[in-house]
């Protein structure tokens, strides 16, 4: 342990020595912080661990996922445990996709100044500003396609000077697009029918009766269904 290369990071202004090579999240844990909230999958998928930091000697205010970014010597770190953001309530069955529903529920999208700060803040490298521009035009399809990989970490929202809650806007757009504009894929309809007809009932029953160990080994040996290319289409 003593031969390990150590670096200095500043967590909320206080200096800590941590081993080189840790992620920001692990560096903070090494320094004694414990995450009860603001940490999830630790694999870059859940979006819970939004973090803000500056690198040594840089003016740039950087944003990332704490579980995906390596701590560097001289970094100033702070975890963003939660981004307060209004998520509007709506009944998806009662929306009119012919109108700009996004402007109704999130009228603040029209305050966008095209500063592009959201895009620069996005750890998923999405073109956030451009999907907000599409949202102003009521283009559900474009918002959905551009925001598809959003993990809802909220960093765009935390950085936005127009106080837009981008990720909730995008989620509403994807829901509308999915429900009203996107064709239901054939294989999904087929599978739903099979489930309804009880095709998998017997198998589920078998799984239910397995012991934990049997389940584990069945999981490891499972077949992953291959979907032939070209079968999944959004048209």
């Amino acid at each position: 342990m003593s031969e390990e290369k150590m670096i200095t990071v500043y967590i909320m202004g206080k200096a800590y020595q941590v081993p080189f090579g840790l992620t920001i999240m692990k560096a903070m844990e090494y320094a004694g912080y414990r995450f009860i909230r603001g940490s999830g999958c630790r694999a870059g998928f859940c979006g819970a661990c939004a973090t803000v930091y500056r690198k040594k000697g840089e003016y740039k205010f950087r944003t990332a996922l704490a579980c995906q970014t390596t701590a560097e010597d001289g970094m100033y770190l702070a975890q963003l445990p939660f981004v307060p953001a209004n998520r509007k309530e709506y009944n998806i069955n009662e929306l009119d996709p012919e109108k700009n529903v996004l402007s109704e529920y999130y009228p603040e999208i029209n305050r966008c100044v095209s500063c592009n700060t959201c895009t620069k803040a996005c750890p998923q490298e999405l073109d956030v500003m451009y999907y907000i521009q599409a949202a102003i035009r009521g283009d559900y399809r474009q918002v959905s396609e551009l925001s598809f990989d959003c993990i809802q970490c909220g960093l765009c929202t935390a950085r936005c000077p127009a106080e837009i809650t981008h990720y909730h806007v995008a989620q509403l757009a994807r829901r509308i697009y999915g429900k009203y504009q996107l064709k239901v894929p054939e294989h999904l309809e087929k599978r739903l029918k099979e489930i309804e007809e009880g095709k998998f009932d017997e198998e589920i029953e078998r799984l239910k009766n397995m012991s934990i160990d049997e389940l584990k080994s069945a999981y490891v040996q499972r077949d992953i269904e291959k979907i032939p290319r070209g079968e999944v289409s959004d048209e």
Partner: peptide, 13 residues
């Protein structure tokens, strides 16, 4: 807000 054109909303805001 869903009835108004974007040009109205953007300018008003």
């Amino acid at each position: 807000a869903e009835e108004l054109p974007a040009i109205a909303l953007v300018s008003a805001m």
